[in-house]
Design a protein around this nucleic acid. Sequence first.
DNA 1: GGCAACTATATTGCGCACAATTTAGATTCG
DNA 2: CGAATCTAAATTGTGCGCAATATAGTTGCC
Lengths: 148, 148
Amino acid sequence: MSDNNKETPQLLLENQICFPLYAAANAVVRAYRPLLEKLDLTYLQYIVLMVLWEEETLNVKSLGQRLRLDSGTLTPLLKRLDAKGYVERRHSEIDERIRVISLTKQGKALKSRAEGIPHELVCTVGLSATKGRELKEICDELIRALAD
Amino acid sequence: MSDNNKETPQLLLENQICFPLYAAANAVVRAYRPLLEKLDLTYLQYIVLMVLWEEETLNVKSLGQRLRLDSGTLTPLLKRLDAKGYVERRHSEIDERIRVISLTKQGKALKSRAEGIPHELVCTVGLSATKGRELKEICDELIRALAD
DNA sequence: GGCAACTATATTGCGCACAATTTAGATTCG
DNA sequence: CGAATCTAAATTGTGCGCAATATAGTTGCC
């Protein structure tokens, strides 16, 4: 334990925990790409729509809190979803600063077309349900630990 | 099992495995940022240097295989590391197509300054060694499953 | 009412990721 | 030898992520 450094040198890529996490996240986004191409969506756009399929309507801030992303990422992304005709971006009438994001008819219609995607991905990955749960738990713990 | 959909609808963010993975990877890169700022490095630049601290010299392709990244990502990154004076990018004399990347004296010197960083991060995260190992294993499995 | 502090979103700029293409050099094989 | 094929790296273009800053609009307080 005290001669930890000799046994597992910290600066070897082999011994990193974060790098596999980082590489796995890239790999997953890459794996989603061909499945989402049919819907003309990127991975993050798909995630944003997933929130909207639940909530119908919401503003940039609460979306950002949910996904841990800021307006610098979300504003241009929402403009692209708008350009594709999947969402609308209205100004709140109560508070002009707030952008109210809502699904268009086309945006709602995408939901049924997306239904099969998570299962398709699970199949190509072939991760057991147990390991999937473990992964989710550890990642959630990490996220909580690193929140602000 | 057959009415899986009713019990855990696939299109709820809450039920996603990949999203926590994605968000955790972002969180980790974010957490590294202030630690790496002192060395004038981004997370990926740090990872690339880590490979070079092991290998002394290598070309773009083998670096890319190691990190699962392509020349579109690596070429500009290596140019930036070059501009910072941490690496050199020579053409191989045997095969002019190949770029041989090697550490400069300054690049080598960074290693000792980076020594404390992994431990610093582990502390802010506070993930147990067991869970760290589990996370690494599952991510490695995911990466293998999604390779090409 | 009016001004200071605050808040929500937008903008700018940089550095990844990666698909698609281009460029230049190496290899193969008739 | 030399054209076709292959290969390594570079380039181009799009879309994140996010820090830093800017722009409006709102609220609080005198």
